[in-house]
Design a protein around this nucleic acid. Sequence first.
DNA 1: CACGTCCACTCGTCTTTACAAGTTGAGACC
DNA 2: GGTCTCAACTTGTAAAGACGAGTGGACGTG
Lengths: 254, 254
Amino acid sequence: MVIDKRSGVPVYRQIAADIRERITSGEYAPGAQLPSEQDLTATYDVSRPTIRDAVGLLRAEGVVYSQHGRGVFVTPPRKVQRLSRSRLSKAARQENKGAFLGDAAAGGFTPSTTVKIRFEPADERTAELLGIQPGTEVTVRDRVMRADGLAVQLAVSRLPREFTRGTPIEETNTGPGGAYGRLEEAGQEFAPFEEIVRARMPSPEEASTLQLAEGVPVLHVTRIARNTNGVALEVNDMILAADRYELGYEIRTD
Amino acid sequence: MVIDKRSGVPVYRQIAADIRERITSGEYAPGAQLPSEQDLTATYDVSRPTIRDAVGLLRAEGVVYSQHGRGVFVTPPRKVQRLSRSRLSKAARQENKGAFLGDAAAGGFTPSTTVKIRFEPADERTAELLGIQPGTEVTVRDRVMRADGLAVQLAVSRLPREFTRGTPIEETNTGPGGAYGRLEEAGQEFAPFEEIVRARMPSPEEASTLQLAEGVPVLHVTRIARNTNGVALEVNDMILAADRYELGYEIRTD
DNA sequence: CACGTCCACTCGTCTTTACAAGTTGAGACC
DNA sequence: GGTCTCAACTTGTAAAGACGAGTGGACGTG
Protein backbone atom coordinates (compact mmCIF):
# COMPACT_ATOMS: atom_id res chain seq x y z
CA MET A 1 0.00 0.00 0.00
CA VAL A 2 0.93 3.65 -0.02
CA ILE A 3 1.15 3.78 3.78
CA ASP A 4 4.49 4.49 5.41
CA LYS A 5 4.27 3.97 9.15
CA ARG A 6 7.63 5.57 9.78
CA SER A 7 7.08 8.75 7.77
CA GLY A 8 6.00 10.82 10.75
CA VAL A 9 2.66 11.51 9.13
CA PRO A 10 -0.06 9.78 11.16
CA VAL A 11 -1.26 6.58 9.52
CA TYR A 12 -4.91 7.54 9.69
CA ARG A 13 -4.18 10.76 7.81
CA GLN A 14 -2.27 8.89 5.14
CA ILE A 15 -5.20 6.54 4.72
CA ALA A 16 -7.65 9.44 4.59
CA ALA A 17 -5.50 11.12 1.95
CA ASP A 18 -5.36 7.91 -0.06
CA ILE A 19 -9.13 7.44 0.02
CA ARG A 20 -9.69 11.11 -0.74
CA GLU A 21 -7.39 10.74 -3.72
CA ARG A 22 -9.29 7.70 -4.95
CA ILE A 23 -12.50 9.66 -4.69
CA THR A 24 -11.29 12.70 -6.61
CA SER A 25 -9.70 10.45 -9.21
CA GLY A 26 -13.06 8.79 -9.76
CA GLU A 27 -12.09 5.33 -8.55
CA TYR A 28 -14.80 5.74 -5.93
CA ALA A 29 -17.61 7.43 -7.84
CA PRO A 30 -20.12 9.83 -6.30
CA GLY A 31 -22.70 7.87 -4.34
CA ALA A 32 -20.64 4.70 -4.48
CA GLN A 33 -20.06 2.60 -1.40
CA LEU A 34 -16.57 2.45 0.08
CA PRO A 35 -15.11 -0.90 1.09
CA SER A 36 -16.28 -1.89 4.56
CA GLU A 37 -14.16 -0.98 7.56
CA GLN A 38 -13.34 -4.66 7.83
CA ASP A 39 -11.98 -4.69 4.28
CA LEU A 40 -10.06 -1.47 4.82
CA THR A 41 -8.33 -2.83 7.92
CA ALA A 42 -7.14 -5.68 5.72
CA THR A 43 -6.01 -3.59 2.74
CA TYR A 44 -4.16 -1.04 4.87
CA ASP A 45 -3.12 -3.52 7.56
CA VAL A 46 -4.17 -1.36 10.51
CA SER A 47 -6.69 -1.72 13.29
CA ARG A 48 -10.31 -0.74 12.95
CA PRO A 49 -10.17 2.41 15.14
CA THR A 50 -7.44 3.70 12.85
CA ILE A 51 -9.68 3.14 9.85
CA ARG A 52 -12.51 4.83 11.69
CA ASP A 53 -10.27 7.83 12.41
CA ALA A 54 -9.46 8.08 8.70
CA VAL A 55 -13.09 7.81 7.64
CA GLY A 56 -14.03 10.24 10.41
CA LEU A 57 -11.73 12.83 8.89
CA LEU A 58 -13.37 12.46 5.50
CA ARG A 59 -16.78 12.64 7.11
CA ALA A 60 -15.87 15.89 8.86
CA GLU A 61 -14.83 17.25 5.48
CA GLY A 62 -18.17 16.27 4.03
CA VAL A 63 -16.47 14.01 1.47
CA VAL A 64 -18.24 10.85 2.61
CA TYR A 65 -21.19 10.01 4.80
CA SER A 66 -22.00 6.79 6.58
CA GLN A 67 -25.20 4.96 7.31
CA HIS A 68 -25.47 2.71 10.28
CA GLY A 69 -25.81 -0.88 9.16
CA ARG A 70 -25.33 -0.07 5.49
CA GLY A 71 -21.90 1.34 4.81
CA VAL A 72 -19.92 4.43 3.94
CA PHE A 73 -20.71 6.31 0.74
CA VAL A 74 -19.12 9.04 -1.33
CA THR A 75 -21.13 12.23 -0.89
CA PRO A 76 -22.68 13.02 -4.26
CA PRO A 77 -22.65 16.66 -5.32
CA ARG A 78 -25.79 18.40 -4.10
CA LYS A 79 -27.99 20.32 -6.43
CA VAL A 80 -27.85 23.70 -4.73
CA GLN A 81 -30.46 26.34 -5.01
CA ARG A 82 -29.45 29.86 -5.85
CA LEU A 83 -31.05 32.53 -3.72
CA SER A 84 -30.80 35.70 -5.75
CA ARG A 85 -31.05 38.44 -3.21
CA SER A 86 -32.01 41.09 -5.74
CA ARG A 87 -35.44 39.44 -5.77
CA LEU A 88 -36.14 41.40 -2.61
CA SER A 89 -37.04 44.31 -4.85
CA LYS A 90 -40.33 46.08 -4.41
CA ALA A 91 -41.58 44.84 -7.75
CA ALA A 92 -40.84 41.21 -6.93
CA ARG A 93 -42.49 41.63 -3.57
CA GLN A 94 -45.71 42.76 -5.17
CA GLU A 95 -45.82 39.71 -7.38
CA ASN A 96 -44.90 37.08 -4.85
CA LYS A 97 -46.57 36.25 -1.60
CA GLY A 98 -43.26 36.19 0.20
CA ALA A 99 -39.63 35.52 -0.43
CA PHE A 100 -39.71 31.83 0.43
CA LEU A 101 -42.84 31.08 -1.53
CA GLY A 102 -41.26 32.76 -4.52
CA ASP A 103 -38.25 30.48 -4.19
CA ALA A 104 -40.55 27.49 -4.04
CA ALA A 105 -42.20 28.40 -7.31
CA ALA A 106 -38.79 28.79 -8.92
CA GLY A 107 -37.33 25.65 -7.34
CA GLY A 108 -40.29 23.43 -8.02
CA PHE A 109 -40.87 22.11 -4.53
CA THR A 110 -43.83 22.17 -2.20
CA PRO A 111 -43.25 24.76 0.50
CA SER A 112 -44.62 24.80 3.99
CA THR A 113 -43.84 27.07 6.89
CA THR A 114 -44.27 26.97 10.62
CA VAL A 115 -44.42 30.34 12.31
CA LYS A 116 -44.18 31.07 16.01
CA ILE A 117 -44.77 34.59 17.19
CA ARG A 118 -43.67 35.98 20.51
CA PHE A 119 -42.89 39.31 22.12
CA GLU A 120 -39.80 39.87 24.19
CA PRO A 121 -37.47 42.60 25.38
CA ALA A 122 -34.61 43.26 22.98
CA ASP A 123 -31.33 41.66 23.98
CA GLU A 124 -27.98 43.38 23.62
CA ARG A 125 -27.32 42.35 20.04
CA THR A 126 -30.84 42.99 18.78
CA ALA A 127 -30.87 46.45 20.37
CA GLU A 128 -27.52 47.25 18.80
CA LEU A 129 -28.65 46.17 15.34
CA LEU A 130 -32.02 47.89 15.55
CA GLY A 131 -30.57 51.01 17.13
CA ILE A 132 -32.92 50.85 20.11
CA GLN A 133 -32.53 50.58 23.87
CA PRO A 134 -31.99 47.06 25.22
CA GLY A 135 -35.22 45.89 26.81
CA THR A 136 -37.47 47.61 24.30
CA GLU A 137 -40.26 45.25 23.32
CA VAL A 138 -39.75 43.54 19.97
CA THR A 139 -42.01 41.30 17.93
CA VAL A 140 -40.29 38.04 17.10
CA ARG A 141 -41.34 35.94 14.13
CA ASP A 142 -39.68 32.54 14.39
CA ARG A 143 -40.06 30.55 11.21
CA VAL A 144 -39.13 27.11 9.95
CA MET A 145 -39.34 26.79 6.18
CA ARG A 146 -39.79 23.35 4.70
CA ALA A 147 -39.42 22.10 1.16
CA ASP A 148 -41.37 18.91 0.53
CA GLY A 149 -41.58 18.46 4.29
CA LEU A 150 -37.86 18.77 4.90
CA ALA A 151 -36.73 21.75 6.97
CA VAL A 152 -34.33 23.72 4.83
CA GLN A 153 -34.23 27.16 6.34
CA LEU A 154 -34.65 28.78 9.74
CA ALA A 155 -35.44 32.46 10.09
CA VAL A 156 -35.90 34.64 13.14
CA SER A 157 -37.17 38.11 12.43
CA ARG A 158 -37.30 40.86 15.05
CA LEU A 159 -39.10 44.17 14.70
CA PRO A 160 -39.64 46.93 17.26
CA ARG A 161 -43.17 46.36 18.40
CA GLU A 162 -44.16 49.95 17.71
CA PHE A 163 -44.07 49.11 14.00
CA THR A 164 -46.12 45.92 14.24
CA ARG A 165 -48.84 46.72 16.76
CA GLY A 166 -52.25 46.23 15.25
CA THR A 167 -50.89 44.82 12.00
CA PRO A 168 -50.97 41.26 10.62
CA ILE A 169 -47.23 41.12 11.29
CA GLU A 170 -48.25 39.97 14.75
CA GLU A 171 -50.31 37.21 13.18
CA THR A 172 -49.17 33.93 11.72
CA ASN A 173 -50.23 34.95 8.25
CA THR A 174 -48.96 38.38 7.31
CA GLY A 175 -50.87 38.50 4.04
CA PRO A 176 -49.69 39.29 0.51
CA GLY A 177 -46.19 40.72 0.22
CA GLY A 178 -45.28 39.52 3.70
CA ALA A 179 -44.22 41.71 6.60
CA TYR A 180 -42.51 44.12 4.23
CA GLY A 181 -45.75 44.66 2.41
CA ARG A 182 -47.51 45.56 5.68
CA LEU A 183 -44.75 47.98 6.65
CA GLU A 184 -45.07 49.72 3.30
CA GLU A 185 -48.81 49.96 3.75
CA ALA A 186 -48.13 51.66 7.05
CA GLY A 187 -46.25 54.32 5.12
CA GLN A 188 -42.72 53.06 5.55
CA GLU A 189 -40.36 53.49 2.63
CA PHE A 190 -37.41 51.11 2.52
CA ALA A 191 -33.81 52.13 2.18
CA PRO A 192 -31.52 49.52 0.62
CA PHE A 193 -31.34 46.37 2.73
CA GLU A 194 -28.09 45.41 4.37
CA GLU A 195 -27.14 41.75 4.52
CA ILE A 196 -24.26 40.28 6.48
CA VAL A 197 -23.16 36.77 5.55
CA ARG A 198 -21.26 34.43 7.86
CA ALA A 199 -20.54 30.73 7.87
CA ARG A 200 -20.00 28.40 10.82
CA MET A 201 -20.65 24.86 11.92
CA PRO A 202 -24.21 24.25 13.08
CA SER A 203 -25.23 23.84 16.68
CA PRO A 204 -26.57 20.36 17.48
CA GLU A 205 -30.13 21.73 17.42
CA GLU A 206 -29.62 23.30 14.00
CA ALA A 207 -28.00 20.13 12.71
CA SER A 208 -30.97 18.01 13.76
CA THR A 209 -33.78 20.31 12.65
CA LEU A 210 -32.11 20.92 9.29
CA GLN A 211 -31.09 17.24 9.16
CA LEU A 212 -27.56 18.22 8.22
CA ALA A 213 -24.98 15.60 7.37
CA GLU A 214 -21.66 15.77 9.17
CA GLY A 215 -19.21 18.20 7.64
CA VAL A 216 -21.89 20.56 6.37
CA PRO A 217 -21.66 24.16 7.62
CA VAL A 218 -24.50 26.64 7.74
CA LEU A 219 -24.78 30.06 6.17
CA HIS A 220 -25.94 32.67 8.64
CA VAL A 221 -27.42 35.69 6.92
CA THR A 222 -28.42 38.74 8.92
CA ARG A 223 -30.61 41.18 7.06
CA ILE A 224 -31.30 44.64 8.38
CA ALA A 225 -34.17 46.58 6.83
CA ARG A 226 -34.22 50.31 7.35
CA ASN A 227 -36.53 53.06 6.19
CA THR A 228 -35.29 56.05 4.26
CA ASN A 229 -34.71 57.91 7.52
CA GLY A 230 -32.19 55.29 8.56
CA VAL A 231 -34.46 53.82 11.23
CA ALA A 232 -34.11 50.05 11.47
CA LEU A 233 -37.46 48.30 11.00
CA GLU A 234 -36.41 44.67 11.09
CA VAL A 235 -33.45 42.43 11.73
CA ASN A 236 -33.78 38.97 10.24
CA ASP A 237 -31.42 36.12 11.03
CA MET A 238 -31.55 33.27 8.54
CA ILE A 239 -29.83 29.91 8.85
CA LEU A 240 -29.32 27.94 5.65
CA ALA A 241 -27.80 24.53 5.01
CA ALA A 242 -24.66 25.27 3.02
CA ASP A 243 -25.01 22.13 0.90
CA ARG A 244 -28.43 23.20 -0.30
CA TYR A 245 -28.08 26.91 -0.86
CA GLU A 246 -25.85 29.46 -2.46
CA LEU A 247 -26.46 33.19 -2.35
CA GLY A 248 -26.36 35.44 -5.38
CA TYR A 249 -25.70 39.15 -4.98
CA GLU A 250 -25.51 41.97 -7.43
CA ILE A 251 -23.04 44.73 -6.74
CA ARG A 252 -23.55 48.00 -8.51
CA THR A 253 -20.40 49.83 -9.45
CA ASP A 254 -21.87 53.29 -9.62
CA MET B 1 -22.95 13.22 37.21
CA VAL B 2 -25.53 14.02 34.58
CA ILE B 3 -24.59 10.96 32.55
CA ASP B 4 -27.12 8.19 32.14
CA LYS B 5 -25.55 5.16 30.51
CA ARG B 6 -28.86 3.47 29.92
CA SER B 7 -30.69 6.38 28.33
CA GLY B 8 -30.01 5.27 24.77
CA VAL B 9 -28.16 8.48 24.04
CA PRO B 10 -24.47 7.66 23.54
CA VAL B 11 -22.38 8.51 26.56
CA TYR B 12 -19.88 10.57 24.58
CA ARG B 13 -22.67 12.75 23.23
CA GLN B 14 -24.07 13.27 26.70
CA ILE B 15 -20.64 14.33 27.89
CA ALA B 16 -20.20 16.63 24.92
CA ALA B 17 -23.58 18.19 25.62
CA ASP B 18 -22.67 18.67 29.27
CA ILE B 19 -19.38 20.37 28.45
CA ARG B 20 -21.04 22.48 25.75
CA GLU B 21 -23.61 23.53 28.32
CA ARG B 22 -20.91 24.48 30.81
CA ILE B 23 -19.25 26.58 28.13
CA THR B 24 -22.38 28.48 27.11
CA SER B 25 -23.30 28.98 30.75
CA GLY B 26 -19.93 30.60 31.32
CA GLU B 27 -18.56 28.00 33.72
CA TYR B 28 -15.78 27.44 31.20
CA ALA B 29 -14.98 30.95 30.01
CA PRO B 30 -13.73 31.82 26.51
CA GLY B 31 -10.05 30.95 26.25
CA ALA B 32 -10.13 28.95 29.46
CA GLN B 33 -8.59 25.51 29.70
CA LEU B 34 -10.82 22.50 30.08
CA PRO B 35 -9.97 19.83 32.65
CA SER B 36 -7.48 17.35 31.25
CA GLU B 37 -8.71 14.19 29.59
CA GLN B 38 -7.40 12.36 32.62
CA ASP B 39 -9.56 14.46 34.94
CA LEU B 40 -12.58 14.11 32.68
CA THR B 41 -12.33 10.32 32.66
CA ALA B 42 -12.50 10.52 36.46
CA THR B 43 -15.37 13.02 36.72
CA TYR B 44 -17.54 11.22 34.16
CA ASP B 45 -16.28 7.73 35.04
CA VAL B 46 -15.67 6.64 31.47
CA SER B 47 -12.61 5.58 29.51
CA ARG B 48 -10.31 8.00 27.79
CA PRO B 49 -11.40 7.16 24.21
CA THR B 50 -14.94 8.07 25.21
CA ILE B 51 -13.74 11.42 26.53
CA ARG B 52 -11.78 11.95 23.34
CA ASP B 53 -14.90 11.21 21.27
CA ALA B 54 -16.78 13.84 23.26
CA VAL B 55 -14.05 16.46 22.92
CA GLY B 56 -13.68 15.54 19.24
CA LEU B 57 -17.33 16.43 18.70
CA LEU B 58 -16.86 19.83 20.28
CA ARG B 59 -13.73 20.37 18.24
CA ALA B 60 -15.58 19.60 15.02
CA GLU B 61 -18.15 22.18 16.05
CA GLY B 62 -15.42 24.73 16.56
CA VAL B 63 -16.41 25.14 20.22
CA VAL B 64 -13.02 24.09 21.60
CA TYR B 65 -9.54 23.60 20.20
CA SER B 66 -6.71 21.54 21.56
CA GLN B 67 -2.97 22.03 21.68
CA HIS B 68 -0.68 19.07 21.83
CA GLY B 69 1.08 18.96 25.17
CA ARG B 70 -0.85 21.90 26.60
CA GLY B 71 -4.52 21.15 26.87
CA VAL B 72 -7.97 21.80 25.47
CA PHE B 73 -9.28 25.37 25.42
CA VAL B 74 -12.59 27.08 24.82
CA THR B 75 -12.49 28.80 21.45
CA PRO B 76 -12.68 32.54 22.14
CA PRO B 77 -14.94 34.54 19.83
CA ARG B 78 -12.94 35.79 16.86
CA LYS B 79 -12.89 39.40 15.94
CA VAL B 80 -14.19 39.11 12.43
CA GLN B 81 -13.54 41.57 9.70
CA ARG B 82 -16.39 42.88 7.67
CA LEU B 83 -15.85 42.91 3.94
CA SER B 84 -18.27 45.46 2.60
CA ARG B 85 -18.74 44.49 -1.00
CA SER B 86 -20.07 47.88 -2.02
CA ARG B 87 -16.48 49.08 -1.76
CA LEU B 88 -16.00 47.60 -5.21
CA SER B 89 -17.48 50.81 -6.57
CA LYS B 90 -15.63 52.76 -9.20
CA ALA B 91 -15.03 55.64 -6.82
CA ALA B 92 -13.52 53.40 -4.15
CA ARG B 93 -11.37 51.74 -6.78
CA GLN B 94 -9.84 55.04 -7.78
CA GLU B 95 -8.87 55.82 -4.21
CA ASN B 96 -7.50 52.47 -3.17
CA LYS B 97 -4.68 50.53 -4.69
CA GLY B 98 -6.75 47.37 -4.68
CA ALA B 99 -9.51 45.77 -2.72
CA PHE B 100 -7.30 43.91 -0.28
CA LEU B 101 -4.99 46.82 0.39
CA GLY B 102 -8.02 48.92 1.14
CA ASP B 103 -9.19 46.36 3.65
CA ALA B 104 -5.77 46.39 5.26
CA ALA B 105 -5.91 50.13 5.79
CA ALA B 106 -9.34 49.75 7.38
CA GLY B 107 -8.39 46.71 9.45
CA GLY B 108 -5.09 48.04 10.69
CA PHE B 109 -2.86 45.14 9.69
CA THR B 110 0.20 44.85 7.49
CA PRO B 111 -0.80 43.28 4.20
CA SER B 112 1.34 41.25 1.87
CA THR B 113 0.43 39.32 -1.23
CA THR B 114 1.99 36.58 -3.29
CA VAL B 115 0.89 36.44 -6.90
CA LYS B 116 1.47 33.64 -9.36
CA ILE B 117 0.50 34.19 -12.97
CA ARG B 118 -0.08 31.47 -15.49
CA PHE B 119 -1.89 30.91 -18.72
CA GLU B 120 -4.04 27.87 -19.36
CA PRO B 121 -6.95 26.64 -21.44
CA ALA B 122 -10.32 27.26 -19.82
CA ASP B 123 -11.82 24.25 -18.10
CA GLU B 124 -15.50 23.40 -18.26
CA ARG B 125 -16.61 25.52 -15.33
CA THR B 126 -14.50 28.55 -16.23
CA ALA B 127 -15.76 28.48 -19.81
CA GLU B 128 -19.34 28.25 -18.61
CA LEU B 129 -18.94 31.19 -16.25
CA LEU B 130 -17.06 33.34 -18.74
CA GLY B 131 -19.33 32.37 -21.63
CA ILE B 132 -16.45 31.20 -23.80
CA GLN B 133 -15.47 27.95 -25.48
CA PRO B 134 -13.68 25.41 -23.25
CA GLY B 135 -10.01 25.43 -24.14
CA THR B 136 -9.84 29.15 -24.85
CA GLU B 137 -6.70 30.58 -23.30
CA VAL B 138 -7.26 32.39 -20.02
CA THR B 139 -4.93 34.42 -17.83
CA VAL B 140 -4.89 33.09 -14.28
CA ARG B 141 -3.87 35.28 -11.37
CA ASP B 142 -3.38 33.07 -8.30
CA ARG B 143 -3.04 35.11 -5.15
CA VAL B 144 -2.41 34.48 -1.47
CA MET B 145 -3.21 37.47 0.72
CA ARG B 146 -1.54 37.72 4.09
CA ALA B 147 -2.30 39.91 7.09
CA ASP B 148 0.71 40.33 9.36
CA GLY B 149 2.27 37.32 7.65
CA LEU B 150 -0.71 35.01 8.19
CA ALA B 151 -2.49 33.82 5.06
CA VAL B 152 -6.10 34.92 5.38
CA GLN B 153 -7.47 34.81 1.88
CA LEU B 154 -6.93 32.89 -1.34
CA ALA B 155 -8.06 34.26 -4.68
CA VAL B 156 -7.88 32.82 -8.16
CA SER B 157 -8.86 35.18 -10.91
CA ARG B 158 -9.36 34.10 -14.52
CA LEU B 159 -9.73 36.42 -17.51
CA PRO B 160 -9.95 35.59 -21.20
CA ARG B 161 -6.45 36.32 -22.41
CA GLU B 162 -7.72 38.56 -25.18
CA PHE B 163 -8.49 41.17 -22.54
CA THR B 164 -5.13 40.98 -20.77
CA ARG B 165 -2.59 40.66 -23.57
CA GLY B 166 -0.07 43.46 -23.42
CA THR B 167 -1.44 44.85 -20.14
CA PRO B 168 0.02 44.80 -16.61
CA ILE B 169 -2.69 42.28 -15.74
CA GLU B 170 -0.22 39.69 -16.98
CA GLU B 171 2.37 41.08 -14.59
CA THR B 172 2.69 40.56 -10.86
CA ASN B 173 1.94 44.17 -10.15
CA THR B 174 -1.12 45.42 -11.97
CA GLY B 175 -0.67 49.03 -10.91
CA PRO B 176 -3.10 51.46 -9.27
CA GLY B 177 -6.71 50.35 -9.17
CA GLY B 178 -5.77 46.72 -9.82
CA ALA B 179 -6.85 44.64 -12.77
CA TYR B 180 -10.20 46.42 -12.90
CA GLY B 181 -8.41 49.73 -13.35
CA ARG B 182 -6.49 48.34 -16.32
CA LEU B 183 -9.64 46.96 -17.91
CA GLU B 184 -11.31 50.33 -17.61
CA GLU B 185 -8.30 51.99 -19.17
CA ALA B 186 -8.69 49.60 -22.06
CA GLY B 187 -12.15 51.05 -22.58
CA GLN B 188 -14.23 48.45 -20.75
CA GLU B 189 -17.23 49.68 -18.83
CA PHE B 190 -18.42 47.47 -16.00
CA ALA B 191 -21.92 46.22 -15.54
CA PRO B 192 -22.90 45.39 -11.94
CA PHE B 193 -20.77 42.60 -10.51
CA GLU B 194 -22.35 39.30 -9.65
CA GLU B 195 -21.19 37.48 -6.55
CA ILE B 196 -22.15 33.95 -5.56
CA VAL B 197 -21.51 32.96 -1.96
CA ARG B 198 -21.13 29.38 -0.76
CA ALA B 199 -19.80 27.75 2.38
CA ARG B 200 -18.13 24.37 2.82
CA MET B 201 -15.46 22.64 4.84
CA PRO B 202 -11.94 23.36 3.62
CA SER B 203 -9.80 20.91 1.72
CA PRO B 204 -6.70 19.83 3.66
CA GLU B 205 -4.56 22.16 1.54
CA GLU B 206 -6.81 25.12 2.26
CA ALA B 207 -6.88 24.25 5.94
CA SER B 208 -3.09 24.23 6.15
CA THR B 209 -2.36 27.32 4.07
CA LEU B 210 -5.03 29.32 5.89
CA GLN B 211 -4.02 27.67 9.18
CA LEU B 212 -7.63 26.92 9.97
CA ALA B 213 -8.62 25.38 13.28
CA GLU B 214 -10.82 22.31 13.19
CA GLY B 215 -14.48 23.07 12.81
CA VAL B 216 -13.94 26.25 10.81
CA PRO B 217 -15.60 26.33 7.38
CA VAL B 218 -14.57 28.53 4.47
CA LEU B 219 -16.59 31.04 2.53
CA HIS B 220 -16.25 30.56 -1.20
CA VAL B 221 -17.12 33.70 -3.13
CA THR B 222 -17.28 33.65 -6.91
CA ARG B 223 -17.34 37.06 -8.50
CA ILE B 224 -18.17 37.54 -12.15
CA ALA B 225 -17.34 40.88 -13.72
CA ARG B 226 -19.06 41.75 -16.98
CA ASN B 227 -18.99 44.76 -19.23
CA THR B 228 -22.12 46.64 -20.19
CA ASN B 229 -22.52 44.38 -23.22
CA GLY B 230 -22.85 41.39 -20.95
CA VAL B 231 -19.46 39.96 -21.89
CA ALA B 232 -17.73 38.35 -18.93
CA LEU B 233 -14.30 39.86 -18.30
CA GLU B 234 -13.25 38.03 -15.17
CA VAL B 235 -14.28 35.26 -12.84
CA ASN B 236 -12.69 35.46 -9.41
CA ASP B 237 -12.88 32.65 -6.85
CA MET B 238 -12.08 33.74 -3.32
CA ILE B 239 -11.64 31.49 -0.31
CA LEU B 240 -12.01 33.11 3.10
CA ALA B 241 -11.68 31.70 6.60
CA ALA B 242 -15.18 31.89 8.04
CA ASP B 243 -13.94 32.70 11.54
CA ARG B 244 -12.11 35.78 10.30
CA TYR B 245 -14.48 37.27 7.75
CA GLU B 246 -18.06 38.23 7.27
CA LEU B 247 -19.45 39.69 4.07
CA GLY B 248 -21.59 42.80 3.92
CA TYR B 249 -23.93 43.39 1.00
CA GLU B 250 -26.29 46.16 0.13
CA ILE B 251 -29.50 45.27 -1.67
CA ARG B 252 -31.31 48.01 -3.46
CA THR B 253 -35.04 47.75 -3.44
CA ASP B 254 -35.67 49.80 -6.55
C1' DC C 1 21.42 34.33 40.14
C1' DA C 2 21.34 32.24 35.48
C1' DC C 3 21.07 28.36 33.01
C1' DG C 4 20.13 23.80 31.62
C1' DT C 5 18.38 19.26 32.56
C1' DC C 6 14.82 16.45 33.60
C1' DC C 7 10.39 15.04 34.86
C1' DA C 8 5.60 15.35 35.15
C1' DC C 9 1.79 16.49 32.67
C1' DT C 10 -0.61 17.29 28.53
C1' DC C 11 -2.77 15.49 24.08
C1' DG C 12 -1.85 12.34 19.78
C1' DT C 13 -1.70 7.85 17.85
C1' DC C 14 -2.49 2.94 17.55
C1' DT C 15 -3.73 -1.79 19.05
C1' DT C 16 -6.91 -5.38 20.63
C1' DT C 17 -11.29 -6.71 22.18
C1' DA C 18 -16.22 -6.68 22.90
C1' DC C 19 -20.88 -5.87 22.26
C1' DA C 20 -24.87 -3.16 20.37
C1' DA C 21 -27.77 -1.77 16.72
C1' DG C 22 -29.34 -1.13 12.00
C1' DT C 23 -29.81 -3.38 7.28
C1' DT C 24 -30.30 -6.80 3.93
C1' DG C 25 -30.93 -10.95 1.72
C1' DA C 26 -31.24 -16.02 1.95
C1' DG C 27 -33.95 -19.53 3.11
C1' DA C 28 -37.50 -21.79 5.72
C1' DC C 29 -42.17 -21.90 6.34
C1' DC C 30 -47.04 -21.30 5.42
C1' DG D 1 -45.98 -17.44 -4.43
C1' DG D 2 -45.85 -14.71 -0.40
C1' DT D 3 -44.29 -13.88 4.16
C1' DC D 4 -41.56 -14.36 8.10
C1' DT D 5 -37.41 -15.42 10.60
C1' DC D 6 -32.86 -15.34 11.10
C1' DA D 7 -28.14 -15.01 10.10
C1' DA D 8 -24.58 -12.41 8.24
C1' DC D 9 -23.27 -8.40 7.05
C1' DT D 10 -22.67 -3.28 8.07
C1' DT D 11 -21.35 0.83 11.28
C1' DG D 12 -21.76 2.69 16.25
C1' DT D 13 -20.19 2.68 20.96
C1' DA D 14 -17.10 1.63 24.70
C1' DA D 15 -13.09 -0.22 27.32
C1' DA D 16 -8.13 -0.81 28.67
C1' DG D 17 -3.53 -0.50 27.54
C1' DA D 18 0.61 1.24 25.48
C1' DC D 19 3.77 4.39 23.66
C1' DG D 20 5.03 8.87 21.43
C1' DA D 21 5.59 13.72 21.41
C1' DG D 22 5.07 18.46 22.81
C1' DT D 23 5.07 21.72 26.85
C1' DG D 24 6.44 23.88 30.89
C1' DG D 25 7.85 24.13 35.43
C1' DA D 26 10.75 22.35 39.27
C1' DC D 27 14.99 21.63 40.58
C1' DG D 28 19.70 21.08 40.62
C1' DT D 29 23.96 22.73 38.99
C1' DG D 30 27.28 25.99 37.66
